[in-house]
Amino acid sequence: MARYSRNPNQPSAEDKALDRFTDLMIEKIKSMKEDWHKPWFTEGALVWPRNLTGRHYNGGNALMLMLHAEKEGYRLPVWCTFNSIQKVLNPEQKGKKDEDLEPVHVLKGEKSFPVFLTTFTVIDKDTKSKISWEDYKKLSQEEKKQYNVFPKNQVFNVFNVAQTNLQQVRPELFAKLEEQCSLSKPIQEGEVFSFPAIMGHKTKRLLRWTGRFGESL
């Protein structure tokens, strides 16, 4: 996780991430201006970005990850953090050591890409004790009035699976991800093409994007 700078003269992790998003968007617009026939996203970047467990990214995070994947030529829209690699892909980190299983890791020299995650601190108004966000969501509307909720935006760094050795050390898993992320081809009937829905309700959510990035990794 990136850290925020305590020096007011230094940009915070959030500022750096937003600057990077801006540069990426400007670069994309310039490339389209040079070739106005070029679509926003080519076929390989049309599958919705997700993490290792299958959870999809939302809003601005999804848009920026799609743009970044398009720019870098990543074939799979699957992203991970250092922590998720250890928890999900390396069983020896969970007490299930397998000496024949080479650990997955980020390749040397690869650079991460920032995403925003909104976390919530929930505190009882009287006792000042905390409860988890998941427990808070289970409360009734009347019970929720007893708590104060404090949202906080944080910046996390993610890597595409192409930036790891996953394909080399877990070829079966990599093939499974390829199958899960495959894009349905359009059906040609004479000179007419019929395109299946690519993203469904998530496309509408992206088109209504308001600039909010908060979600779970």
Rank of each mutant, 00 (worst) to 15 (best):
V104A: 03
V104T: 06
V104H: 02
H105L: 00
H105I: 01
V106E: 08
V106G: 07
V106W: 05
K108C: 11
G109V: 04
G109W: 06
G109E: 03
E110M: 12
K111S: 12
K111A: 08
K111P: 03
S112V: 09
S112E: 08
S112G: 11
S112Q: 06
F113Q: 00
F113K: 00
F113A: 03
P114N: 05
P114Y: 08
V115T: 06
F116I: 08
F116P: 01
L117P: 04
L117V: 13
L117K: 09
T118Y: 00
T118K: 04
T118D: 12
T119P: 09
F120A: 02
F120K: 08
T121I: 07
T121G: 01
V122K: 00
V122N: 01
V122Y: 07
I123N: 07
I123L: 02
D124F: 02
D124S: 07
D126I: 05
D126C: 02
D126F: 06
D126V: 11
T127H: 05
T127N: 11
K128C: 08
K128E: 12
S129V: 10
S129W: 04
S129I: 06
K130Q: 10
K130P: 00
K130S: 09
I131H: 04
S132Y: 12
S132V: 09
S132F: 14
S132P: 00
W133G: 10
W133Y: 15
W133M: 11
E134S: 09
E134F: 02
D135W: 00
D135P: 09
D135Q: 12
Y136A: 14
Y136E: 09
K137Q: 15
K137L: 15
K137T: 15
K138Q: 15
K138L: 15
L139D: 14
L139Y: 14
S140I: 00
S140P: 13
S140L: 10
Q141W: 13
Q141K: 13
Q141C: 08
Q141V: 07
E142Q: 15
E142D: 15
E142A: 02
E142F: 06
E143L: 06
K144E: 10
K144G: 01
K144P: 01
K144T: 06
K144Y: 03
K145Y: 06
K145A: 14
K145H: 11
Q146F: 03
Y147A: 02
N148V: 09
N148G: 03
V149H: 06
V149I: 12
V149R: 01
F150C: 02
F150P: 01
F150V: 03
P151C: 14
P151R: 01
P151K: 10
K152V: 03
N153Y: 11
Q154Y: 11
Q154R: 15
V155A: 07
V155K: 10
V155G: 08
V155S: 06
F156Y: 15
F156A: 14
F156W: 10
N157F: 13
F159K: 03
F159W: 14
N160H: 12
N160D: 12
